[in-house]
Amino acid sequence: MSVEPTTAVRRLYDEVFNAGELAVADELVSPTFVGHGGPGGDRTGPDFLKQSAAVLRGAISDLHFDLHDVFAGGDRVVARWTSTGRHTGEGLGQPPSGEPIRSDGIVIFRVDDTGLAEQWSAVQFGR
């Protein structure tokens, strides 16, 4: 991986999720990436993260992830974040409410020489 692992995670949230620069995921995420768990089971490849960002950005206006902690040990990077915005679009499994929305998460990434290779997430949704 040409980018330092904690920098890669910061860029994923800042550039892909916050700014909507979806192509950046191709630079940071391994072609064999696996996102474990969540609705529908495991998801693979950089397209999974690009689709996730696109859905969230379409459903939540002013979507913003604030990274509170990002640290690494061995081949793992952990990020703790809060996301905020307003639920104004489709894609969250319920009609848009127009209300503020917030979620808090902790995500563990495994990194290898090809990029962000695996992800495990714990997310708490709230308003």
Rank of each mutant, 00 (worst) to 15 (best):
G58A: 07
F33M: 13
A25D: 10
T84M: 04
D62C: 01
D47E: 15
A72D: 08
R10L: 04
T84Y: 03
A23Y: 02
V77Y: 03
P5N: 12
S61L: 01
A8F: 01
R86T: 15
A8C: 08
A19W: 05
T88M: 09
M1F: 02
R110G: 10
I108C: 02
S30D: 14
L22E: 14
G105W: 00
M1Q: 11
A54R: 06
I106A: 06
L28M: 09
G105P: 00
V111E: 09
H36V: 09
P39Q: 07
I60N: 06
Q94V: 13
S30A: 15
L116C: 11
G105H: 02
M1R: 09
S83R: 05
P96N: 10
P39A: 12
A19E: 15
F48V: 13
V3W: 03
F125L: 12
G91H: 02
D14L: 05
R10M: 04
R10W: 02
H64L: 06
G37D: 14
D75V: 05
L63I: 11
V29Y: 02
H68S: 12
F65V: 11
G89N: 08
L12M: 14
P96K: 06
D113M: 02
T88P: 05
G20K: 05
A19Q: 15
D62K: 07
A122L: 11
